[in-house]
Design a protein around this nucleic acid. Structure first.
Lengths: 250, 250
DNA sequence: GCAGTTAGCATAACGCTGTTATGTTAAAAA
DNA sequence: TTTTTAACATAACAGCGTTATGCTAACTGC
């Protein structure tokens, strides 16, 4: 009754089931939020039973974990479109803008990535977190360039990258939680954070401000670069993925 | 069968049931995390039925909301122990340290306050968030003093307060999510954030650094001031209730 | 080509959850 | 005293994640 209507129902390694489940789960999460992520709902929309979730992911936790990896993949996708220029400060500011744009574009996905537990008893493993941290290695490299160019005062590049990460993550979280009331320009806070991060020594405030402004212009191109081929690298056959909604520029 | 063993079971407005439910829920949340927050579990431990949750809170959402208010009350309790000194920068840094300490002391509670949805379909109302923002009004006032004392460059005090809030919230969230790996000195990030927040213009770096160091010493006294009827520790005997209940205001 | 194994999935059930309809009862109101 | 009311118990319902069982098509060895 619940079985697929037309297809011949192969018994071994149906190559369509797993990506379909991931796809439907991602769509449900984006459209209706974490509450819609139930094994029965996903299985029904995929035309199979809940067992498909267990054979493919070992349970709901595995599927939620897949969502987390999907989220980091999307972030990585944005990061890969940030080019290295002669202005490393503008580059690192652009990383921050891209991070924020990705989070605001995929709010529920972002919540699952960093929302801690509370979702069907799911919790990240150390390996999951390491996967997430790896995404930021590009930013650390950029921070090193900032120090080398003497735009940041000499110090730990990883510290600077983490400072940027925590600041923007906090901003994005409170934005998504609607704690920043209207009319409140979250973008002003963002730019102030970037500026505060950058002017480590003395009188280079104006130069830093120019870099921040420059990164704002460059963000559009990054977004446009990511948009066409959104998230994953599914074999492009019968992918069901929605073309990903756009979001206001930061 | 499930009713209380000894008490006379008054039918109208039992003054013990509601605080007992709040108390047990807070303890379960602190000890076992959000997963332990179930109506049946709470009611059983209170010696009543699940209906008590509905008559007193209108459902699980109402009880979770009560936890959020409890969380902000605890934060307010810490903030009330931050005194005004002649060094407003050290004061505002101390607000940040107190905020972080409170969050790390009540991790599950903090997660419920800012974890967004995902917990039994609970979501904050606009009024709830306003209650949370009110807690930060003290910090905004302190930021104003920093500007008046010309320790921050002239600008929007609310912007500065929100910058501090978002930065520390992000740090705390990633700390609780264990995204900051060991050995990683989250305290260094915290101090770098504070420093970056403060040195708005030129050559006052050393002075700012002194203020930050001063706030670190003062934190201990704040914690000790809050501790007497504190947060988590119900060490003595088998008391189940921390007193605590602060009054809000619009 | 055939037999045995295996893995993907359907079916159905278990225990759990939040929630609700109904009944009971004691306190407040008349 | 009588009526009303609200707090709570009981029991049920729908939905959840999960699991045991069985079927069957695909793979494997011959």
């Amino acid at each position: 009754m619940l079985c697929n209507t037309v297809k011949v129902s192969p018994r071994r390694s149906n190559p369509q089931t797993r990506p379909a489940l991931v796809d439907i789960a991602a769509r449900l999460l984006a459209d209706e939020g974490p509450q819609a992520l139930s094994a029965r709902r996903i299985a029904t929309e995929a035309g199979s039973s809940t067992m498909a979730v267990y054979t493919n992911f070992g349970g709901m936790s595995g599927l939620v974990r897949e969502m987390v990896y999907e989220g980091f993949a999307r972030l990585q996708d944005y990061f890969s479109h940030v080019s290295r220029t002669a202005d490393p400060v503008a580059d690192i500011a652009l990383f921050g803008r891209a991070y924020r744009h990705n989070a605001l574009t995929n709010p529920h996905l972002y919540a699952v990535m960093f929302g801690g537990a509370s979702l069907a008893g799911f919790s990240l493993t150390a390996e999951d977190r390491q996967y997430g941290r790896y995404t930021l290695s590009t930013v650390v490299e950029c921070a090193t360039r900032c120090i080398t160019a003497e735009r940041f005062r000499a110090g730990d590049a990883e510290l600077v990258a983490h400072q940027l990460w925590t600041a923007i993550h906090g901003l994005v979280t409170l934005e998504l939680g609607e704690y920043l009331i209207e009319p409140f320009d979250a973008d002003r806070v963002f730019e102030a954070q970037l500026t505060g991060l950058m002017i480590g020594a003395g009188d280079i405030l104006e130069e830093a401000t120019r870099s921040v402004a420059s990164s704002k212009r460059r963000l559009r191109k990054v977004i446009e670069g990511v948009r066409p081929d959104p998230v994953d690298d599914r074999p492009a056959g019968d992918r069901r993925r929605r073309p990903r909604q756009a979001a206001p520029a930061g």
